[in-house]
């Protein structure tokens, strides 16, 4: 019943959700990210592509300040979420991460039941008043992650017992249970088989209705399939950023072209 709206937003939505200006990251001596400027739109899937070690995951981890947890990392530059500087000392990264959720490369369900995995975020952030509400959040999240029908009869079973694709969808359900506004995905399909990948990709497309999704991938086909915007990173620099169709059919930078056509990477 939301199809109409979906189609409209596909082209109309141009609000900047996250703006990054002059972002630099150092890991100890290593200069991992050089002067990156990006505007990430709301309710859009943005793909970061590039050869491994190009800084795309590093940049992704800047967006919800996950790099804070790495002792040797140093982040410079300005990143704003809805116009607010996320490095503002008054902002607690914990609250930021509730708004900017993250899904990781390898499915990492906690060694808890499926229900508790999804309920973890709402519990720590105090999003539910009472058990009924919590159960409702769990159900909604699992439905959004297209996992509900597969697990509704075994919510108390351990999350680690699911298949790889199910585990990753569980992690996505876990991430959306805190009702984030942005969802960061760090190569979410790299550990999955093709069928599970297809399911997750389909899910990403649906999530676009409510979230701004940023996905890091080293698969250009995947970027082309799921994203509206694409950013190409190379050697720590953002080389090119634009409409996905344009990047893949008509790249402006020769390095992008070289990567797309398989000459580097």
């Amino acid at each position: 019943m939301n199809d109409m709206r979906l189609v409209e937003r596909d082209v109309e939505q141009v609000t900047g959700k996250i703006e990054a200006r002059g972002v630099q990251v150092h890991y100890g001596e290593k200069h991992a990210l050089k002067d990156v400027d990006v505007t990430i739109l709301d309710r859009t899937v943005t793909a970061f592509i590039g050869p491994s070690g190009c800084g795309k995951s590093t940049f992704l981890r800047c967006l919800n300040r996950m790099n804070d947890t790495v002792a040797s990392a140093r982040v410079e530059g300005r990143i704003t979420l809805d116009g607010q500087d996320i490095h503002d000392p008054r902002i607690d990264p914990v609250q930021l991460r509730a708004k900017v959720g993250m899904v990781f490369q390898k499915p990492n369900p906690f060694p808890k039941s499926i229900h508790d995995n999804v309920a973890y975020g709402p519990r720590i952030h105090g999003l539910a008043r009472g058990k009924a509400e919590l159960d409702a959040i769990v159900e909604t999240s699992l439905r959004k992650a297209a996992l509900w029908d597969e697990v509704k009869d075994r919510l108390d079973a351990p999350g680690t017992g699911l298949s790889g694709g199910q585990q990753q969808r569980l992690c996505i359900a876990r991430a959306i249970a805190t009702s984030p506004e942005v969802l960061l995905m760090d190569e979410p399909c790299s550990a999955l088989d093709p069928i599970a990948t297809a399911q997750v990709e389909e899910l990403i497309d649906e999530l676009r209705a409510q979230f701004s999704v940023v996905i890091v991938t080293h698969s250009m086909q995947q970027a082309a399939r799921v994203s509206q915007k694409t950013a190409f990173f190379h050697l720590g620099s953002l080389v090119e950023y634009g409409e996905t169709g344009q990047i893949f059919t008509n790249p402006r930078d020769p390095r992008t072209e070289a990567y797309i056509t398989g000459r580097i990477g």
Binding site: N2, L81, D82, Q84, I86, D88, R90, I91, D92, V94, Q95, L96, A98, K99, P122, I124, H125, G126, L127, A128, R129, E133, I137, T140, R143, K144, A177, T178, S179, E181, A209, Q210
Partner: peptide
């Protein structure tokens, strides 16, 4: 499915640190 979870109003300012966050800290 678009109904957000209660308690987390969309677009709420990050600067408004809640009592809950302070307790967690």
């Amino acid at each position: 499915v678009t109904a957000g979870a209660p308690g987390a109003a969309r677009g709420q300012s990050l600067l408004a640190g809640s009592a809950r966050t302070r307790a967690r800290r």
